[in-house]
Simulated scan of single mutants.
Amino acid sequence: MTVLVDPPLWPRHGRMWAHLVSDTSLDELHAFASRAGLPRRGFDLDHYDVPDERLDELVALGAVPVSAGELIRRLRASGLRVPARERGGRPHA
């Protein structure tokens, strides 16, 4: 059971964003996000969007930093990945 976070590489709303995922379950992801005080509105089907200034705090709480490629590989392997075609065509983590 691991919660993963990738580097903040995605610009939006005047800041950079990272993605927080679980490689085990959405329940684990939501529980971690709740402990970290992340708003549920940051959840996007299979991940939370996280502003770059929260990264160190998430790692201190136990999130494992990985590359964006590793995050996607592990999310796909978990079976939790929601493909772009199911996101209404929006590409995202």
Rank of each mutant, 00 (worst) to 15 (best):
L61A: 06
E70Q: 14
E53D: 15
R41K: 13
P65L: 08
L75E: 11
L26I: 15
R12H: 15
S78C: 10
P8T: 06
G62H: 09
S25K: 04
P51S: 05
D6N: 14
D46H: 03
A63K: 06
V59H: 00
V3M: 06
V64T: 15
R40H: 02
G14I: 14
W10R: 13
A60M: 03
G69I: 10
L26W: 01
P83G: 02
P11I: 09
P65T: 07
R15W: 04
V21G: 02
V66Q: 06
P39E: 10
D6L: 07
S67P: 13
D6E: 12
G89D: 03
R76P: 03
E28R: 11
L71Y: 03
A84Q: 12
E86P: 01
L4H: 08
P11A: 12
R90G: 00
W10T: 15
G37R: 05
P8M: 05
L58C: 08
G14Q: 14
P8G: 07
E28H: 12
H47E: 08
R90D: 01
R85W: 07
V64L: 11
L4Q: 10
A31W: 03
P83L: 03
G79S: 08
W17K: 03
R85K: 06
L71A: 15
D23S: 15
D44I: 03
D46T: 09
H13V: 09
M16C: 05
S22W: 04
G69Q: 11
P83C: 02
L38C: 07
L29I: 11
E70S: 11
H13I: 08
P11C: 06
R90E: 10
A77I: 11
R74H: 10
G37F: 06
H92A: 13
A60D: 13
S67E: 14
R76I: 15
R81M: 04
R35C: 05
D44Y: 00
S67G: 15
R15D: 10
H92W: 13
L29D: 08
L80S: 03
H47V: 08
H13F: 15
L61Y: 05
A18W: 01
R90S: 02
Y48W: 04
